[in-house]
Write a protein that binds this DNA or RNA. Sequence first.
DNA 1: TCTGGGGTCCTAGGACCC
DNA 2: TCTGGGGTCCTAGGACCC
Length: 420
Amino acid sequence: MIALIDCNSFYASCEQVFRPDLKGKPVVVLSNNDGCVIAANQEAKALADIPMFEPVFKIKKQLIENGVTFFSSNYTLYGEMSDRVMRILQEFSPVVEIYSIDESFIDLSGMKHQDLRAYGIAIRDRIKRYTGLPVGVGIAPTKVLAKLANRRAKKEAGNKDVFVIDSEEKRIDTLKWAKIKDVWGVGRKHAKRIQDTGNYSAFDFTKMPLSWVRKQMTVVGERTWRELQGENCLPLERLPKPKKAIGTAKSFGKKLKKLAVIEEACSYYINEVSEVLRSQNCCAKYLKIFLQTNYHSEHDKQYHNSITVTLEVPTDNTFILNAEGKKALHQIFKPGYRYKKVGVCLSGIIPKEYVQTSLFQQTDEKAGLMEAFDRINQKFGKTALAPALMDSRRIGEWELIKKERSPRYTTQWKELLEIS
DNA sequence: TCTGGGGTCCTAGGACCC
DNA sequence: TCTGGGGTCCTAGGACCC
């Protein structure tokens, strides 16, 4: 059996843990630049006129009128709260697959003799007690079924956030209860295609011919179909896989016209992604740079372009990547536009020890430089050392807007929660 | 005025290899 | 007259996830 543990309204719940005065009140968390709503607690979801992913400027009035408290996203806080939850789960199973910031699959196959519902309740209670966060627990023979069980745990009040599919009757019953669009792995497009054939529930889907599923939804859809029948196709991944692509692309706080300022943002992002690259001991062969205007705007002239640089020798060196990135950016930049976003993405990622050096390359006299660079930044702050291209005095011209960010309660001494 | 960010996997088709 | 067979690698595009 597999359990899926998933935090309820994770970001909103993290904020509420440190703001007990908000208990029972509507809370939403906003995306970068405070652009749109990305998380809402139960109370906020109950207000029908606050849909998710709605641009904030369109609903700001309703938020205020309904007394909704809103927060800018505080990923430092959420990431650290997530670590706490995942550590607790390791007490319940030797095999934990961290699937996302707020959910994990755990292997319960050694616990057949246990009362699984009682076990799920114990997980739920311990996480609540140790972190203050509410979670749902779904337990079933496959991952896709565990996802559905988890959904049912939360949707049906009587389940008290724990639901177990441990019999054929419960499996069928849950399949009939679930709409096809709520099945993990079936997105908007496929849900529509399936509904167009007159099938609406997860149960209906399992009765459709496999040939149709395979043809329309590829092998991915076939796995979903089989998993719903109780056949295991998606094994638990105990170790996180190294990333195949590492990218970042954030909208600017305001529109930018000047190349020099965009260059800085770009350099800042390259600094970030190359650090992540080094943290997994890899080098990258390709560096993609892209640039775009605001595609929502009807007044602005539109332009977007990208360029991929193939590096002669795969590298993890911030300075080399920066120099290449700058050249690439110059190639795609066109003056006269109001730019909204610049992005960088590293791919062709291979372990550092596999890197084949160029025939003519000299031995690297600066080996160890990046290691020292990272260590200094770990000790003295993220950008204590940075390429000169990144002029932190000008960061205000492009950095994100986060007007309502809560304190980083768990990672900064100066921002500890105070109780008076 | 103001609209998120970071990923994965699969397939088809082209280029290329022996 | 008649022109093979078995592969790999790469990329773009689509669909999905949180």
